Simulated assay, not measured.
Amino acid sequence: MFRAYIVTVSDSSYFENKKDLSGPTLVNILTEKGYEVVGREILPDDREKISSVLEMLCDEDKADLILTTGGTGFAKRDVTPEATLDVIEKSVPGFGEIMRSKSFEITKNAILSRETAGIRRDTLIINLPGSPKAASENLNFIIDSVEHGLSILRGEKTDCGNMGDKR
């Protein structure tokens, strides 16, 4: 079982106590897929705070997977991808590429999203959009590949070319 941690990045949820809808949506998906959700946190759109939390979670081996939701758009305070890039050791561009591509089939504005992903130590970090609908759709686009990637990070022998009936 993989451990997951969800970080919601939202000024309005952090400062104004606006209800976080995306975090619980992601918890439901992950739980249904057999992940253990070990924590959730709400942070403001602050690059240093986001980077600091991501770094701590990875360096203290708190989770195998960290999903962020929010802060991936064009607004001046949207800095989640930059905060993620500040801490990762390896970039994993495929996740952002496929999420934008599949989302573009739903809405042409998906091209404006800046999700990124990467690895720090043994933890995979993936940025998701902030809306519950977009976060859910995007996670579902990639969840099978996430599990395979996490197995590789754990050092498990896997056949990357063979995904059985998922291929």
Rank of each mutant, 00 (worst) to 15 (best):
K76L: 12
P44S: 09
D20N: 08
Y35S: 04
L112W: 02
G155H: 02
Y5S: 06
G130L: 04
K102S: 14
F74D: 13
D144W: 00
D11R: 00
T123A: 07
R167P: 07
I143F: 00
R114C: 09
Y5V: 00
I142P: 05
L30E: 10
R100G: 10
G118R: 02
L21M: 13
V38S: 08
N162M: 03
L65Y: 00
G70N: 08
R154I: 04
N109C: 10
T158V: 15
A63F: 01
I143C: 02
I142H: 02
D122M: 08
S12Y: 00
A110C: 04
L57T: 04
R154N: 12
E156G: 02
I42N: 10
S136N: 12
P129R: 08
F2Y: 09
F2C: 04
S113D: 06
N140C: 05
K18S: 10
V38C: 11
T69C: 10
E32S: 14
E16S: 12
C160W: 11
L124P: 02
S101P: 13
A134G: 04
A63N: 07
R77E: 07
T107A: 12
A83I: 09
R100E: 12
D144S: 10
N127F: 04
F141C: 04
T107N: 13
F104R: 13
C58I: 04
F2H: 10
K49P: 11
K62I: 09
